[in-house]
């Protein structure tokens, strides 16, 4: 479970978060939506321990991220937007390294690569991968962590429809296994009917929830991408 209380964050004079509250329950896919600049990415970065809030608290599975950062992050796997990797290392070496950081074996890393169609690229340096292949490598590493809390920032942007569908199926399956899943996205159309909850963030604050089965109605307000559902 993810809990955030009264998060505030400023970059210089610009206030990005203004007392944001958040509660994401396990066993469900929760979307976080909002227009550009609403504070979604900043919120995810704070929840993932990549940025410090000026005020407020974050707990991941009951671990306060400020007081027990390592224990909190051990329960979390985060997929950043537009992931990139060391260009001289191969896909296999990269996956094995992150597997080692999570106590996973080489075999588990290869299984994760295979699940995302990347095993055949295991010997290719990541600098030579296309954007879509890099995203699939990132998904393999993301899944390899096998963490109870999964957070994704705009996960489908570089993927083709088939792999976007695979990603959704994966997340639905993981939610069914009791994982806590939080997805920040603009691709509202393709999540309609798949998500269980939809949190609205505007001007750095939580503004309640939207009905997850009628997300398309909110396109004009949220600047959503009107792509067909996959």
């Amino acid at each position: 479970m993810i809990l955030a209380h009264e998060l505030t964050k400023s970059f210089g004079a610009r206030r990005v978060l203004r007392g944001l509250d958040l509660a994401v329950e396990p066993g469900a896919i929760t979307l976080m939506v909002g227009a550009n600049g609403a504070g979604k990415t900043t919120t995810l970065r704070i929840l993932a321990g990549l940025s410090r809030a000026d005020r407020g608290t974050v707990t991941i599975c009951g671990r306060d991220l400020e007081k027990a950062r390592g224990a909190g992050l051990a329960h979390l796997s985060f997929l950043p937007q537009a992931p990139r990797f060391h260009p001289r290392l191969t896909t296999g070496q990269t996956a094995c390294f992150y597997g080692e950081l999570r106590g996973r074996s080489r075999r588990e890393a290869e299984t994760a690569l295979d699940a995302w169609g990347m095993l055949e690229f295991a010997d290719v340096p990541t600098g030579k991968l296309s954007g879509g292949l890099r995203q699939r490598l990132a998904l393999a590493i993301f899944a390899l962590a096998d963490a109870p809390v999964l957070m994704l920032d705009e996960p489908g942007l570089s993927l083709d429809p088939e792999w976007r569908r695979s990603l959704q199926d994966f997340l639905v399956s993981e939610a069914g296994r009791g994982r806590t899943i939080l997805v920040a996205t603009h691709l509202l159309g393709e999540w309609e009917g798949k998500a269980d909850r939809c949190l609205l963030v505007e001007h750095g604050r939580s503004q309640g929830e939207l009905p997850p089965d009628r997300l398309r109605e909110y396109f004009p307000r949220l600047g959503g991408v009107t792509e067909p559902a996959v």
Binding site: L50, A71, L73, P80, F85, R102, I141
Partner: peptide, 10 residues
């Protein structure tokens, strides 16, 4: 380019 992954590890 990879700090976002590395710094997010437990």
């Amino acid at each position: 380019e990879e700090y976002v992954w590395i710094m997010g590890q437990p």
